[in-house]
Computed example of a mutant assay.
Amino acid sequence: MKFTITTLIENSKGEHLGLINEHGISFLIEMDNKKILFDTGQSGDFIKNAATLGKDLNDIDTVILSHGHYDHTGGFRKLVENVTSDFRLYVHNNAFIKKYSYDNTHYKFLGNSFTKDFISENNIESHYVTEDILEVHKGIYIISNFERVTPYEKTNPRFYLENGDEHILDHFNDEIMLAIDTEEGLVVILGCSHPGVINMLKTLIKRTGKKINTIIGGTHLVRADEDRINETINAFKSMDIKKLGISHCTGENAMNQLHQAFGDKYFHNTTGTVLYFDK
C-alpha cells in the first residue's frame, strides 16, 4: 500500500521558506484514491501552503480533527469556505466542550471557532466519534478513549473545561489519533497527545495487537520534567519504533533529547515535510 503524508503546516519552517508556519499542525494523507486531512492548524493558512505544494484540497474525502484546541481546528471554517468537496468529518463527540488554559489568575479560551450547529448549517456529513477504535477506510483507524496506565503521564493542571458556571480539569477525553496499517507496522499520526503519548500508543498496541513502525506529530512534552522525558524515551525504545517525526508541542528540550537518543531514527518534522510509504 503506497501513500504519502505531507505536513501542510507546523510550528517550524522547513527548507521551503515560501511556506507559512504557525503554532498548529495539519497533515494531508494521500492513498490510492483517498485524501485525508488530519487537523487544520489555527488560521487556515494550511490551504495556501497546500496550493504552493501543488496539493488540491477540493477532492479531499475525509477530515479528522484530533481534539478541540484552536491550533488543530482553527482553520476548519476556512476549509469549509474554500473547498468544494463533500468530505466526511470525524471529530470526537466531546470536542465541542469549551476549552481554556488557566495561569492562576484568569482563564483563556483555547477552543474551537465553530460549533455543531455550524457543521449542520453547512450540510457537512459528520461522525461524532465515541468508539474506542473505528476503521474509517480499509486499514486506516481512528483510536480514542485512551487507557491511562503510565504513572508519569499526569493530567496537565493548565487546561480546563467549561462546566456550567464553573471550570473543571480537562482530561482530554476528546483526543483521537490516526493509525495506518502497513506490512512493516503501524504508522501513527498524533495531534497533541494530551492524554500522554505512551498511554495512547500502549492503548493502540493493546487494541490492535500490532507493532508501531512510525510516529509523526506532537507529543506534548513541552513542559515535561526530565524524569518524564526519560521514561518516554525508554518506552519508545521498548516499542522498537523505527521512525519518529516529532514536532509541534513536543518542546525544544525534549526534541533535542529524542534526537540524541534515536539518532537517524529521529527527524524534526517541519512545514512542507513529505513522507513516502510503499508497503
Rank of each mutant, 00 (worst) to 15 (best):
E81C: 07
L79P: 06
E121I: 11
G68Q: 01
F3Y: 15
S66F: 03
Y141T: 04
F277V: 04
K279L: 09
I205S: 08
L244H: 04
K279F: 12
D174N: 08
I133K: 10
F114N: 09
D61G: 15
V63W: 01
A51D: 08
F109M: 05
Y266P: 09
I20A: 03
K78C: 02
G139V: 07
F118K: 04
I241W: 06
P151D: 01
M255H: 08
E125R: 15
V80Q: 01
F3C: 13
I25Y: 03
H67D: 13
E22T: 05
R223H: 11
Y141A: 02
N21V: 00
G218D: 01
G41A: 04
M1Y: 08
E153S: 01
K34N: 13
E175M: 06
Y160F: 14
T4V: 09
G41N: 02
K206N: 13
M31D: 06
D61A: 03
M200G: 06
H220K: 08
G24T: 05
I168S: 05
D86N: 15
I143G: 10
N269L: 09
I5Q: 12
V274M: 07
D117Q: 11
V149Q: 13
I189N: 07
E184N: 12
T182F: 03
R88H: 09
I229S: 03
G54K: 00
V129K: 07
S43C: 07
G75I: 06
